[in-house]
Every structure is written in structure tokens, then in C-alpha cells.
Design a binder for these strands. Structure first.
Lengths: 270, 270
DNA sequence: GAATGATATTCAATATACAGAATGACAAAG
DNA sequence: CTTTGTCATTCTGTATATTGAATATCATTC
């Protein structure tokens, strides 16, 4: 007889992390922070505890400690917990240290302004995922808002073509990942592979409305070390607007910026 | 006989946090994250332990747990630890939830573009400090770079005039804080008070080269609830360039944007 | 190549963080 | 007004996270 399990839980993965760790409280704290970060609204103690499979008592102490560290805010009236701006201060420390994000910010803003597109600098974590580490919005017209810290599957959209083209992964491995992706208008694996091949030739990943309907995404790889790209520069704009703004010019400018960054980071393409 | 204390330490405050906490590991983890965030470069285990007054052994487990949670990165060759991009993902969760930062981003980008200035949205934490929670850079010309998460003393610069003007703090309290501030060109307390008075009349904080030589800063308060301002919109630009761009127009636009945000947040000035 | 000093890491005893039960606090339903 | 249910919080014994010493690893110097 197992216990009734009234709501879906993130417990299993957390339990694995807690087991064999010499500092389980930290795993729990991280899980709580992530849960609060995902949530739309502040959460009560029991909800957090249930969701993570924690003992409410333990969970209370975790939350109290996080509140004391100003990573979590607590509303005494509603007894609800939410992320506090302390997490921003941590993020700032990372941003300052990260060479890529520091170097990329300027070029991203220039491209964003010149072509009226949203620009991202992303860090590539193997074949698994990418994270937006620098953002520049055009400010004009529609905004395709993405925030720093946003996480995407590695093989999605234009960056995905770059990672597939230059990451040195086997076709079987790519296929397995590819099949898990969600697109507005999914390309066939064969089509996608030929686009990847094109990316290998041109040095530029292109996604024309596959990922998001009516939106064109371009991505140019950046190398910190030889081997596989560590980052990418990404341009995002409405397909119609991009044609007007001069797609070829943007493509060239994007590739040039990526090349320049690769040099500054001491890397080398290929 | 106390132990020799070869290097300055952050230990005391951490020890206080650890005492009486039911989750000391979390306090330690937070301290480690902050230390790594402040550091220019990756740090070794012993350095971290010494700086925080932790047992190296304990510190190792803390760092391992943080690495497992992808909040800290570890270079096996150099055995150095640094913040990892996981902290960005946490920050993103906060940004998404925070009503002010979501609502402010658009207006900030518009003002930044229209007037060629760096724009900040800051959250006010009483008389103690403020944190930049939204940033828009002009991209053109010199950049006065400030990152999301940056922390400043509450009473400094233009925002300081707003907080002093509308925070309802006593003069003695203000004086005490004021005396701790560092400016490029410090105003006298009397001068500063009269500027605060002006801010109370005009609804706009102005700092002309006090905080940073040659740089003018404007700040307009935003109210989430009646009482004292919860946030502010800040414009930063080279004094010379701002005069050319049309300072009065920027002042009006800034105040208008702040008023609009106050309404959207359901607040009320005063 | 041995010795020194600095690291990082493991290990075993013990102070204590944690789980579970019990108690308060509060709101909604009867 | 009482009951019922949910939620937050306190309390207590015990499994275990923490500690400090011991060990391992690696440069650096002699």
C-alpha cells in the first residue's frame, strides 16, 4: 500500500538530490527557489511542501532561512512566499563575471537598434539546453519579449540548427532530441537535416516560422574554444518586418558580430 | 587568547545568521553565492572557507551541493568555483513575477531610445538601499552601464532626493544616512535638503554631477501603495548630451511615465 | 629528487537539523 | 455557535550533517 498522492510532485528528483548529499538543505532550498520562480503567484507553506514532497516542518525552516537571506519574500498577512529581489543581485554577480555577456551586450544593442529586432546572446549547454544570458530589445513596434535567464531546448529554432551543424553530434542522437521538440510548424527531420547542412555551409542558422508562426529567427555561433560553439547570437523579428528591414544585411551583420566575439573570447571557429 | 586572524573575514555576520537558524547550510550557501558573485574571478575552496570563516570540509560540501544544483560551476583542472548561469534562471523567475519590472520595461526602452539615455527601473527598500530591477541602454554613444540587480544606497543621487522627499523620514535619520554616502562632488547637507524640498514640489529628483562628475541623473517616484514610493524611474546621461537632447522634455516624459506606472500598479501618489 | 608548503579531500565522533506527531490559528460550512 | 477542514507552527527524539584531524595531491623551492 503506497500513500495516496493527490497532486503531481517534483519529489522524486529532489529526493535523489537529497540522498547522498552532505548538504541536503541546500538541495531543498534550490528546489524551493525554482518552484517559487516557476509559480505565477506567491505560494503557501503547505503547497510548497506538498509539491516538493517535503515535510512541512522542514519546509518552514527552509523558507525561513531563505527569507533571512532575502532570497524569498514573505507576506505576514497572507503567509505567502515568493522570490525576492536578492536573486537579482546574485544574477548580477554572474553577469559581471561572464565575459561573453559583457562583451556581447554592446553589439546586441547596436544590432537591435539598427534592424529593429530583438537580440539575444545565448549560452549553449551541450545538446540539452541553451540559456539567454544577454538581451536587447528594439523598443520599437511589437516586442518579442524574452528575459535574461530564459531556458530553451538546445535544438529548437535557429540556434538549434547551429548546434546540430557544429556540435559534432551523431544523427541518431540528434533524432532522439529532435523528436521531443515542440514547434508551431514542425519541419520534418529530413528537411531539418538539410537546413542544418545549409547552416554548416553558410555559418548561420535560420528558422522561418517553424518555431513561432510568422517569426523569423537567425543565429550565428560563437566559439570560446575550438570544438563546438559555446554561445550564439540570435536575432528575432516578425518575418514580414525583417524582409523590409533588409534580411541579407542583418545576416551579414550578425555573422560579423559573432566572428568578432569569437576573436575577443580567444576562440576559433570549427 | 583568541586565534590569529590572518585575513579580513565576513565571518561575524555569517555566524550570527547560522546561530539560531534551523537551516544553517542555507545561510552558508547564500554567503558562498554572494562571495562568488562579488569576486572578479573563480575562487578555490580554501579561500572561500577562510573568507567566510567556514570549515574547509563544510565548505566543500556546500560548494558540491551548489554545483549539483547548477548554481555554481566547478573547473576540475583549476579546482576553482564560480557562479553558474543557474542564478540567471532564478532571476528570470523573479523578473517574470514582478509587476513593476514587467510594466516598466516597455516605457524604459521607449525613453531610452527617444532621449538617448540609460534608463533604470529601481525598487526602493526603505531608507537603506535600492536595486535596479529593469534596465534599458541607449546603445548609442557612451554607455553608462548598469546591470539588473545592481544595488545602491537609498539616499544617493537623484533617487535619493525622491526617497528623502516622499519617504516621510525625519531629518536626523536622513542626516545619519546622508553622512555615509560617497559622491564624486558631495553637496552640503543643507544644499541637499533644499534640493529635496524642490523635489517635493516638482515631483522629480535631480542630481547634476554630484553622484558622478559630468553625469546628470533624474528620478521620478512610483507608488504601488499610498504612503511612500515603492519604485522609481531613473534617467542617466552625460550632462552635456542631455542638454542637447532636451532636458525639460525628458523631465516631463519621465514624470508622465512614472504617473502612468503608478496608476497601472493600482497605487496613488502621496 | 627530497622537502616544504599550499592546497583539496576523506574519515569517524558528536552536536544538531530534521521528520513526524501534536498543537494553535483561522476560515468555511452546517 | 459548533463543527470541520486546512493551514501554519511548535515540540521532541534520533538519524545525520558538521567538525577537526588525518590523509592525499600537487606545485615550488632547495
Amino acid at each position: 500500500m503506497t500513500k495516496p498522492n493527490p497532486s503531481p510532485e517534483l519529489a522524486p528528483q529532489l529526493n535523489r538530490a537529497v540522498k547522498d548529499s552532505k548538504a541536503p538543505a541546500i538541495s531543498r532550498a534550490a528546489a524551493v527557489l525554482r518552484l517559487l520562480g516557476k509559480s505565477e503567484s506567491p505560494l503557501g507553506l503547505n503547497l510548497v511542501a506538498r509539491e516538493l514532497g517535503l515535510n512541512p516542518s522542514t519546509c518552514l525552516y527552509v523558507l525561513r532561512a531563505l527569507v533571512a537571506e532575502e532570497l524569498v519574500s514573505f507576506d505576514p498577512d497572507t503567509k505567502r512566499y515568493a522570490l525576492a529581489s536578492g536573486v537579482l543581485t546574485l544574477a548580477r554577480g554572474w553577469l559581471q563575471q561572464d565575459e561573453f555577456s559583457s562583451l556581447a551586450q554592446g553589439p546586441l544593442e547596436r544590432l537591435s537598434r539598427d534592424f529593429g529586432v530583438t537580440m539575444l546572446g545565448v549560452e549553449i549547454f551541450g545538446i540539452d539546453h541553451i540559456i539567454a544570458v544577454a538581451v536587447a530589445q528594439s523598443g520599437a513596434g511589437f516586442q518579442l519579449a524574452t528575459q535574461v535567464g530564459s531556458r530553451f531546448p538546445a535544438l529548437i529554432s535557429a540556434t538549434g540548427r547551429c548546434i546540430a551543424a557544429f556540435g559534432g553530434y551523431g544523427e541518431a542522437q540528434l533524432k532522439a532530441r529532435f523528436d521531443t521538440l515542440r514547434w508551431d510548424d514542425p519541419p520534418s527531420f529530413a528537411d531539418w537535416l538539410s537546413q542544418v547542412e545549409r547552416t554548416r555551409e553558410t555559418g548561420l542558422g535560420v528558422d522561418e516560422g517553424n518555431y513561432i508562426d510568422g517569426v523569423t529567427v537567425l543565429a550565428a555561433p560563437v566559439w570560446r574554444v575550438r570544438g563546438r560553439p559555446s554561445h550564439a547570437l540570435v536575432a528575432i523579428g516578425l518575418s514580414a518586418a525583417l524582409k523590409r528591414a533588409g534580411l541579407p544585411e542583418l545576416q551579414d551583420a550578425l555573422k560579423a558580430a559573432a566572428r568578432e566575439l569569437t576573436v575577443k573570447l580567444g576562440g576559433e571557429a570549427g
